[in-house]
Write a protein that binds this DNA or RNA. Structure first.
Lengths: 99, 99
DNA sequence: TGGCTGTTTGGCAAAATAGCCAAGCAGTGG
DNA sequence: CCACTGCTTGGCTATTTTGCCAAACAGCCA
């Protein structure tokens, strides 16, 4: 049996966990199109700004996204690009199942 | 901005969430090679049998794995095959980062 | 029947997560 | 300097998740 290092599992799991919340996933989904500022993401998910900020912190820590401050706004962009492939894949699997 | 349905996000997030635990991810990782019975998976993660069973229930509910009882044992196998691609992708991203 | 093995379920306490409000903080402009 | 905007952080409570033990349960064999 292929034995994977526990560290790798823990680290990978952190990434999946970060994607495992509807708001965070929706934000990442949106970021697949290109960078967005926090206010745009807030509008997307409709939660309190502080909540959105904390969600983004989770994604940042998992290194799924990166942030850059320009002027008064902070822009987030997708850092782990293959996430986009994951999302498509899961969505396709769900659509197939639904049919 | 591409607008995704909240239902789809919630459903997809559930799948990512299911993968977002080191033990569950390790089990799914192992199942990429082929079906395994619960006792093999227990040995892999080293937790209490009941804990393993509950983790498997989470994966089952998310439809990431399927179960089949044969004789006295229950065999689990990967149902959402693209998960295997995800894991490779994340692992590669992590390895690149480490280097 | 009764006892065994492999697995699931119930129940609980500890830990982690979510989301709101309020406060803080950096950059901008009057 | 002051006030304002955009965002983050602290603090709190409610909810969810985790993981153990004990109990239940199904299939097999004596």
């Amino acid at each position: 049996m292929l034995m994977a290092s526990p560290q790798l599992m823990t680290h990978s799991a952190k990434i999946f966990k970060a994607l495992g919340h509807p708001s965070r996933l929706a934000m990442v989904h949106a970021l697949c199109e290109g960078e967005k500022c926090v206010c745009e993401l807030q509008e997307l998910v409709g939660s309190d700004m502080s909540t959105v900020s904390k969600h983004l912190a989770v994604l940042r820590e998992a290194k799924v996204v990166s942030d850059e401050k320009r002027g008064m706004q902070v822009y987030y962009s997708l850092r782990m690009h293959c996430v986009s492939t994951f999302i498509d894949c899961v969505e396709n699997a769900l659509k197939e199942e639904a049919s």
